[in-house]
Design a protein around this nucleic acid. Sequence first.
DNA 1: GTGAAGGGCCAC
DNA 2: AAACGTGGCCCTTCAC
Length: 588
Amino acid sequence: MIKANYKLITSAEDLRSATEELSKHHIIGLDTETTDLDPYRGKLRLVQLSTTEEVFIFDLFAFRDAKENEDLKPLRDVLSAQRPVKIAHNSKFDLKWLRLHLGVDVNGLFDTLLASQIISAGDTDDRHSLQSAVARFLNQSLDKSEQLSDWSNTLSDSQLRYASLDAAVMIPLREKMVERLKKDSLIKCAQLEFECVLPMAHLELAGFFLDAARWREQLEIVKKKREQFADELQEMLAEGALQGSLFGRAEINLDSHVKVTDALKRLGVPMPENTRGWQLQPLANDYPVVAKLLEYRTVQKALTSYGENILEEINPITGRIHADFYQIGAPTGRMACSNPNIQQVPHGEEYRRCFRVPEKRKFVIADYSQIELRILADVSKDEGFMTAFKSGADLHRATAAQVFNVAPEDVTSEQRSFAKRLNFGVVYGIGAPRFAMMTGVSTEEAEGIMRSYFQTYPRLDAWLRNAGNRAVRDRETRTLSNRLVKFRFDENDRRQIAGTKRNGTNSPIQGSSADILKRALRLLYDELKETNACLVNVIHDEIVVECDESQANEIAEKVERAMVTAGKEYVKEVPIVVEAEIKDEWVK
DNA sequence: GTGAAGGGCCAC
DNA sequence: AAACGTGGCCCTTCAC
């Protein structure tokens, strides 16, 4: 059973001696208690720091104006120093509050949530709450009943005991996790993740500005378009109906795939198993009604996911959108984002241009050029594929020239398009039938093109096959940071084996790309520290920074440098290219 | 009425 | 026979 002797700190004098004691330790536990989940709405009540012997509970309500209060400086110093190492669960949360309410950036972190996810290596059955982690690693139960209690009034002994336990448990939990991280060679990956937390905390605090008036304006236009598509689609679908209602045409629920499928069948459209876009696309040429359906769905999707609802996500205090980012959102290590997901705002300018800079500010929008393909080239060491990048010219054209054995200037637009689709497809483990479907050639032709692609890049082919086979054999794979991705599958199920092969080739590529981005975010944080530029969005291979107009050029250089440097740490031979632009709106 | 699953589509 | 990887979010359908 975890026990903790706590000391409540409410005076400058006690604070000094407590921090003095804390700085004698190499490793301490960290937790906070707040009156809300939103740092802009609530107050930071307690900061708990634990050693192996005791827990110091700092009651910030006992100190006036915490952010500027000189009496709290020793506490800030302990938190900002690289040592002692601060252990916390979901430290991004604590870091946001400490930054905003205590004016300190925490350095020297060990995050038990991230460590738990890294160790689980993508096993989606594992849960990663503090409670689950304590149960799994320490075989103990943790009482969370006071978590949502009122932290704004006089605190009960039960609350203080709860507060101290959460901090105290960090030390034994970390010990168990370090054992596992070492055993699985995951220390480097963990360090990468821990160093990325502070940039993520800043990202969430900064938020992304959305021009609400412009958004509403644009929505009206899209809504009109939807009404028009809906009308036209109803008209076209009704032709197959046996009878209309007495009051006119029988309306079909266009958002019901069941009803729409029925209606399309009535019209004699040879329907595939389901009505997903990529299955319907080939029918769009022959059946205008199918083309119309796809048009309708695109507009409908945009309107439902990115309609009025997103305006509710604007924080009334900052006037900006503070989305939730999950640093390890996918088994590959990729991030995920929600409430709202600003990583998948539709590309249409009508949406993107609503994300604009405030007065006197600029965006620096920087993205990696073909990062996944460069990683693939570098790890496979395929001479031809690497050459295509080293030439510095248009990659898809260069690929087409090699695959179709023509001079780059003689590549037709069709050949370039084949090359482009294949370049993108190989990362996902595309097969000939799918390639045929998306390019409109026969499966035999597709097989021929793919064969010549892989003959042109034999080592690339070998690497892909090998990666897939190894994934099946070892039931795991690694990214360039040595991040582990485990696979679970039924070896008697051929579909699952095929799926594991695709995962086995895709994960190291996608995951390494995530590694590079995370490293870039940390380097960027270090570069931007002394400026008032801030990270405002991250989209897998793209970074959006908002900065003062007057510094835009300088900041753009810093962003580019951080990203290229990060890339070069992992990709040794193939050049890393970053394209940075200065913009007023989030458009390319 | 509620919640999970299925189907679909957006981003990379 | 299978057919392109990772996520989030929407709507409908269906079971409880």
